[in-house]
């Protein structure tokens, strides 16, 4: 561009943008500043900087909401659901592209059509089905549900990507005596990597933050994920803002750290996923 010079107009624009950015960050200021105040100080003036740092808010909230357990549960369910989803969706998307039989075309169309169904539209009968198949109140049950709800979009995204891989690469491997599963695992799957990253990012953000499905499925306290334990924490400690805000800061920290470390991939993945999806 010709006018790339940093003019005074740009400086004004930059200042406005920074002000807007600060405006966006104000909620985090309130959250963090008040999470280290005593309850009385929060009530006195929630906009002021803390006069005395009360770190015990954190240690108490940590213990009450059993944070390590909730974090472990969230991490476990997110990781295994991602592994399962990536595997079953790439396998079936690959088959759909390379063997477009009538049956496979119908199944693929069903997968795509089902992306329209909002979760709330099927959650009630899902509870019935979950009890038939013994999926209630268990990690494995939650895992199976995430596979079911995530498979449509993941297959759809993989499908578009497999189409762009030239079939000749696979043919030469078949000639060399590679089995169909070997061809997929050694040749196709590594080529899918950019799409795999996108899908894992989209599914991780969804599963990590999901509240409704686990709240319906899980009963036992020891299985609770971070959103569930935050919710029950708020149920028990209504208006105890000193503890509640510390709990919230802990609750958002893992996903914020995840975002800040993988920022570039996340933003690229979201752009790719939403433009195609």
């Amino acid at each position: 561009m010709a006018h790339r010079r940093y003019t005074s107009g740009m400086l004004i624009l930059e200042l406005c943008a920074v002000l807007l950015g600060l405006l966006f960050l104000i909620p985090f200021y309130f959250l963090i500043a008040n999470s280290v105040k005593s309850f009385a100080e929060i009530l006195l003036d929630s906009a002021a900087w803390p006069t005395k740092f009360v770190w015990s808010n954190y240690t108490r909230a940590w213990e009450i909401m059993k944070f390590p357990r909730a974090f472990g549960n969230s991490l476990f369910i997110t990781v295994i659901s991602n592994l399962g989803l990536t595997l079953i969706s790439s396998l079936s998307a690959y088959r759909f592209v390379r063997h477009p039989s009538r049956f496979n075309n119908i199944i693929f169309t069903l997968f795509v059509a089902a992306m329209v169904i909002p979760f709330q539209s099927i959650m009630i009968p899902l509870m019935k089905v979950a009890s038939w198949f013994h999926l209630l109140d268990s990690r494995m049950g939650l895992f199976v549900c995430y596979l079911g709800f995530g498979v449509s979009i993941s297959v759809f995204l993989f499908h578009g990507f497999v189409k762009s891989i030239p079939v000749e690469i696979e043919e030469s491997a078949v000639v060399d005596g590679c089995s169909p599963l070997g061809v997929f695992w050694k040749i196709v799957f590594p080529l899918l990597k950019p799409m795999t990253v996108t899908i894992i990012i989209l599914n991780s953000l969804w599963i990590w933050n999901d509240f409704l499905l686990p709240s319906l499925l899980l009963g036992r306290a020891e299985l609770r994920t971070i959103p569930l334990s935050t919710f029950s924490f708020f149920g028990q400690y209504t208006k105890q803002w000193d503890l509640a805000l510390a709990a919230l800061v802990m609750g958002i920290t893992p996903i914020v750290v995840f975002f800040l470390t993988l920022q570039r991939h996340i933003i690229e993945g979201i752009t790719a996923g939403s433009v195609k999806g």
């Binding site: 169904i117 099927i122 899902l126 198949f133 199976v144 079911g148």
Partner: peptide, 16 residues
Amino acid sequence: FVGPALLVFVIIVALP
């Protein structure tokens, strides 16, 4: 290749 994806889809989405 297709079985696992189809199975979870049928149980978790189609059936409900």
